[in-house]
Design a protein around this nucleic acid. Structure first.
Lengths: 349, 349
DNA sequence: TTACGTAATTCAATCGATTGAACCAATGCG
DNA sequence: CGCATTGGTTCAATCGATTGAATTACGTAA
């Protein structure tokens, strides 16, 4: 097993110096066309592979960018990943990737490691509970003056770029839709973690209830993980209430899908016997049975804008940190409809 | 903006040499406990961040591993990603990630780039159409003697490690189940690309049909992308046939979900009016309405084993390449049942 | 006191690519 | 013919960490 060829291998072969080889392979005009092509041919011939460790050491940029997601099992987040990956690939940068499993220690470790690797920037969906200190504090000095863009979830009081969805508006769209259909008894499912999305969406939900003059029945508010199982499990609980809700507003599509599964099992017809809404409008929402009414979070806009912003920062953009909110869109499908006729009569009445 | 601290920064501060600092931070016994802790404190104090470019240049291993997936939109593949990410994280390695979008040129470019970055190994779900030459040929010498493990999809005639699912057996399980229920008219949906999974599953399907003495009606065989839309679209086409199938065998859960959506729209009851099967048994299969009968592909076993194998290769294991097949499991849920009573009468008869 | 062993630390070369400055040769111009 | 210019290439220092060999300091045995 011979050693991997280097610029020296090429230079010796052609009869020039390492410098010439270096310049030639990067199409520097200082090297004549003739020698340049001889060098390039030699590189090809010996199977030369550029060594970014060496280059990165000298130049300071490794050509990588880091991305840390809180949860891979939720397709919503992989949508982001897809958009960003494309953007970075086009920019010629590789992606260091981490799945933080909603675990602060994993996130913290990754942030350190990506700094060690010389990643030029970081895009982060902060795990639940991430605070200012985790990104900004004295123990994470590598993030000072470091290109970092938060997406999807905000972290209060930080001076980093953020690209997020307008969650409060999204909930308002859903609420208005359901309220206009005649619903008065609502349930709220999900949003268990300490994240801006959980807080913002629930706050907005409560505010809308309040604005509509509806009391919030705390027995219809259930926090829990963003999982199919949670939605599935909670429907039974809600239906067992003395006055079950006529509309279930879910923190996420994933939870709503779980609710739909439970509806099927109980013989409840979503959109007729009960209204169910999701949030995110991931690809699968249009194909559930029945198709899910949801709020589209523009993962494309957010992912692309975040990537752009990060690349600009890496390129040296020094403008003050921005906080951009992308507009959600209500997508009405089949799981919402007017409340059933007899819904005004509480079942115990 | 001061320059990032290096070993020299620390050394100067403590009053020792760079070598001492280097050794101390790696807990080398050559440095006394006293100075070692002074050095470690100084490192902490100045906010030192290890520079892997420099270390990697000298030592030759950057501590990264590369993973290239063909398709992120399919949760089946992100399941792999999750398992592998965990394994590599535990092994202290970072992950360079690529989404190849089923595009050979992206895959090829990534393979080159991860070599440039000094990734210690590569796990690859080869994009459709990947041939021996793409991995082994004279144009990709960086993969010679390089730790590479293929997962999920096989590539013929290669001498790389492979960890895949036993697809032929999986299809046999499904077919036997449906055949035992009484089905005789089958349709096959999906498997459009030039991949081993597409070939193996369809070949197995045809073989089973043959073994059962059933003719394969080519109008019930439809190749197409692994997407919800494809499954959704194809149901109408199959139902419009003079003698529609009573069982639809889908290449993937994703396609099956599309079929279920179309069933809902047409008022067909999966498992009663029509049997539908998936393949992969991704998490969502248990929560579709109705719950999907599928074949579980052990992404956990495959992902973990592939990671292990790769780490062993990186550690210097030189045994001949292996090809391991993980056993699939039939998971019977609600979308399969006996064919409807009148199904023996062709609708045109 | 001298020689010696050991512990602690330093020396110095190295990994491979980059780059501003220096060098050399050939050409152009006065 | 001599000097300046330009084009083409090389020189040599540099990035930061690593490591086998060398050195120093110190205590101990002869």
């Amino acid at each position: 097993m011979t050693r991997r060829p280097t610029l020296k291998t090429i230079a010796d072969r052609v009869g020039v110096t390492v410098s010439a080889a270096s310049l030639a392979l990067r199409d520097d005009p200082r090297i004549s066309t003739a020698t340049r092509s001889r060098i390039q041919e030699a590189a090809e011939a010996v199977g030369y592979v550029y060594n970014r460790h060496a280059a990165g050491l000298r130049r300071g940029d490794s050509g990588t960018v880091a991305v840390c997601l809180n949860d891979l099992s939720n397709p919503f987040f992989t949508e982001f990943l897809g958009h960003m990956e494309t953007r970075f690939r086009e920019a010629g940068r590789m992606m260091l990737f981490c799945h933080a499993h909603e675990t602060p220690s994993i996130q913290a470790r990754f942030i350190r490691q990506m700094a060690e690797h010389g990643a030029a920037g970081l895009i982060l969906v902060p795990v639940a509970g991430t605070s200012r200190e985790d990104l900004d504090g004295p123990r994470v000095r590598h993030l000072q003056d470091f290109p970092l863009v938060l997406i999807s979830r905000d972290v209060a009081d930080t001076a980093f770029d953020r690209v997020i969805n307008d969650d409060e508006h999204g909930v308002r769209l859903l609420f208005d839709h359901l309220h206009a259909l005649g619903h008065r008894r609502f349930a709220w499912l999900g949003g268990g973690g300490d994240t801006s999305t959980a807080h913002d969406r629930e706050r907005s939900f409560r505010r809308e209830m309040d604005a509509a003059g509806l009391p919030v029945d705390e027995t219809t508010i259930h926090h829990g993980p963003t999982s199919l199982a949670f939605g599935d499990r909670m429907l039974d609980e809600l239906m067992a209430l003395p006055t079950p809700p006529t509309a279930i507003v879910c923190f996420s599509d994933v939870i709503a899908f779980g609710v739909l599964a439970a509806c099927y099992r109980r013989g409840l017809r979503p959109g007729i016997d009960l209204s169910v809404t999701g949030f995110d409008d991931m690809g699968a929402a249009a194909y559930s049975a029945p198709a899910l009414t949801s709020v589209r979070v523009r993962t494309d806009l957010i992912g692309n804008r975040a990537s752009e912003l990060l690349l600009a920062r890496i390129a040296g953009d020094r403008q003050p940190a921005v906080r951009e909110m992308m507009p959600p869109e209500l997508v009405v499908r089949e799981t919402t409809g007017p409340p059933p006729e007899d819904s005004e009569r509480p079942s115990r009445g």
